[in-house]
């Protein structure tokens, strides 16, 4: 469950960017649409606790995220938020499964390799568990990125332009996969995009302008 009210962010020396209120119930997914330059990434970073809003409030579950600072914010982020970025990036020196284990560590969880492997299995990349990430194909890397977003059973999964680099077929597959796993994990999925192909796949839409 996520709720925002009167959210605004001000970059130094610029006018504040104001965002429409967002409200997603449990298991509700949302699409944030808007052309470039309307603050999509800024909103995603605000929701993900990577930026602190200059005005307004964000509530995830029972927590006022805008009130959290420093270590508490880091911890909250690690435990409750999973982010899938436009381009998948990983720790180069670690294998696929080690990347997932590190994500557990960073959230303060115990390493659960069985869970990591079963998650990879669900995403059909179990065979790549011990591969270095940069040796995997883009498709596999994107699935691993989803696995990483899911590994700590977050309340919210944020996806930043997850389909922009994909062809039509893979685009559809990617979004339905995200929806499916988010539903399975009882997480809200919020997709930020300007990709019109996705419009009809998620009902709830928030338009930025």
């Amino acid at each position: 469950m996520i709720q925002t009210k009167n959210l605004a962010y001000t970059y130094p020396g610029e006018l504040p960017i104001r965002f429409p209120d967002i409200s997603c119930q449990v298991n509700e997914h949302a699409l944030i649409l808007g052309p470039s330059g309307t603050g999509k990434t800024t909103l995603l970073h605000l929701l993900g606790g990577l930026l602190t809003p200059s005005e307004g409030s964000i509530t995830i579950g029972q927590t006022n995220v805008d009130q959290l600072k420093g270590f508490a914010l880091d911890k909250f982020r690690g435990e409750n938020i999973g982010i899938v970025f436009q381009k998948p990036h990983f720790i180069r020196s670690l294998t696929a499964v080690e990347n997932l284990l590190l994500t557990q560590t960073l959230a303060g969880h115990k390493n659960d390799k069985a869970h990591a492997l079963s998650l990879m299995d669900r995403l059909s990349i179990a065979g790549k568990a011990n591969s270095l990430t940069y040796t995997m194909s883009i498709g596999e890397q994107q699935r691993l990125a989803i696995a990483r977003a899911l590994i700590n059973k977050p309340a919210i999964i944020l996806a930043d332009e997850p389909s922009s680099a994909l062809d039509d077929q893979n685009c559809t597959f990617m979004i339905s996969l995200l929806q499916q796993v988010a539903t399975e994990e009882n997480a809200n999925l919020i997709v930020v995009t300007h990709d019109s192909r996705i419009k009809n796949m998620i009902d709830k839409k928030i338009n930025l302008s």
């Binding site: 993900g48 990577l50 420093g70 270590f71 880091d74 911890k75 982020r77 690690g78 435990e79 938020i81 982010i83 990036h89 990983f90 720790i91 180069r92 590190l102 994500t103 960073l106 959230a107 303060g108 990483r148 700590n152």
Partner: peptide, 18 residues
């Protein structure tokens, strides 16, 4: 070279101290 990796680690809950 690893700036992005470190940002990712922060996203996943790593504190600056870590």
């Amino acid at each position: 070279e690893r700036r992005y990796e470190m940002a990712l680690m922060r996203v996943n809950g790593a504190s600056p101290g870590m």
